[in-house]
Design a protein around this nucleic acid. Structure first.
Lengths: 117, 117
DNA sequence: TAGATAGTTCAGAAGTTCTGGACAACTAGA
DNA sequence: TCTAGTTGTCCAGAACTTCTGAACTATCTA
């Protein structure tokens, strides 16, 4: 699928600013939220339909690249598609509580927003 | 000091992606780390000397503007200078544990980094 | 081999961030 | 009130990043 091999940083090279930058985009935060409960992994096509159906394929591919390079996900080839999974256990060991705290706050924000309407 | 009045978002308008974006810059994360223990508040000049002495004044001013507009700090005029303070209690009420979790992870990163050398 | 599907790469457009220099707000001393 | 000093903002161009359509690569099935 790729001309270049898929590159994943070692967990010790994953930075906090890198994680925050990757999650500071609403689409990427939504992708990671989906992946948190969806341990089977998601590909680009799944993501476009679940997260933002107007998003072009190239943009979706780029978002996954950014999440991968920040160390948040691991991408594996499964035939013609990629399976993208959260590096949940590694992240939890390296930065305990960080990811859950961010996703919990985001969830609280969504709940509050939906009550306003 | 400013021609325009200082604008702070209401705590309910503070978003998680906004917070993450503001803290995804190493300088701004360092500023917030300083402010966390420094309840008296910091101005630009303090910050330049403590956080990054090579940073231009206009860049420092911009970083504070970004932190302010993300809802992380409150800036008050004190004569010729601004006192910038974390909106700690408000943030804690709106997104409990979020800020501490990020700062704790960042601290762990710094400790691990200093051990490597 | 051909056709279908999934994802990447490229390059230009659009948007954001950085920074030096000019400026504005304020203070204190004469 | 005038002047000098200090702090911070604004502006505009440079540098950098992100977005996206179109062309391309990789893989599967038959």
């Amino acid at each position: 699928m790729s001309t270049r091999p898929l590159c994943h940083p070692a967990i010790d090279d994953v930075t906090v600013t890198g994680i925050l930058h990757a999650l500071s985009d609403p689409v990427r935060l939504a992708i990671v939220t989906e992946l948190r409960t969806n341990c089977a992994g998601m590909n680009c096509i799944d993501t476009m339909s679940r997260v933002d159906s107007t998003m072009p394929k190239s943009t979706c591919s780029l978002h996954f690249q950014i999440l991968r390079e920040a160390g948040l996900i691991r991408s594996e080839r499964r035939g013609v598609e990629l399976s993208n999974q959260l590096r949940l256990e590694e992240l939890e060991q390296r930065y305990p509580g960080l990811l859950d705290s961010i996703l919990k706050s985001h969830q609280q924000e969504l709940v509050k927003l939906s009550r306003k309407k």
